[in-house]
Design a protein around this nucleic acid. Structure first.
Lengths: 126, 126
DNA sequence: CAGAATCCTCGCGGATACTG
DNA sequence: CAGTATCCGCGAGGATTCTG
């Protein structure tokens, strides 16, 4: 049996989804691949903050989960192309909502933190 | 500055969202609280697999992120009620899609695994 | 080029015991 | 009842080096 990855301990289906798309770089990888097939180095350049090791790792996991396909060209120098599957396309809208909500949340947090210094309401009766 | 939690290293907005709702028990907690305010023990009973320590932890994080409110009643025995905020209500649909996709994915995976024993296609020319 | 191998850090989540 | 305090294991992700 492949322990695969986190096999979310909570039976929660939402958790399961996150275990599939929740790797640190997986959303980014998916978004990039959803825009077209890419070779390894292209991805690496597009996501420079991810180590090659981690990138490979996440790609393998996505592949194991059927989210992407990996095509190897037996040439020298070697070439490998990654592309999104239909399954990946089916999460695209979710990725979109996730991104939108995240942006709103981020904006909200910033407004909050800008306000703090100006209204120290807790100090009035301190 | 509060390091809060993972402060997702990838600037990815989707990651940010997951850092907010991605704790192991957070989706479950949120779903429960979205159905109405609950006290600590109620939640603990509803999510028996989460230890009290972790439950408290996740509740604190959700509170810090403005997803829930914590109301303390100065009585003996003490009473604390948790309830979902508007921000939490705004993620509800996302939680829904996450759950739906997870269920479909799970069903898909099971079909795949049931097929494996019956079509060892890779062995024909082995 | 596309990785594999190795070693390491960090923090999530768990277990258990104790308290106002 | 609703936590806190302490200790710990595990796995994700990082840094670096080597290779077909």
């Amino acid at each position: 049996m492949r322990p695969r990855r986190l096999e979310p301990k909570s039976g929660c289906a939402a958790e399961l989804t996150m275990s599939v798309i929740g790797g640190l770089w997986k959303p980014t990888i998916l978004v990039n691949l959803l825009m077209g097939k890419k070779r390894f180095m292209e991805l690496s350049r597009l996501i420079p903050d991810a180590t090659q090791r981690v990138l490979t790792q996440q790609l393998r996991e996505l592949e194991a989960d059927g989210m992407i396909t990996r095509q190897v060209f037996p040439e020298v120098p070697p070439r490998v192309e990654y592309s999104a599957t239909d399954l990946a396309r089916s999460v695209a809208p979710i990725l979109g909502s996730l991104r939108d909500w995240g942006n709103q949340f981020r904006a909200n947090q910033q407004r909050m933190e800008e306000m703090e210094p100006h209204c120290p309401a807790e100090e009035v009766d301190a």
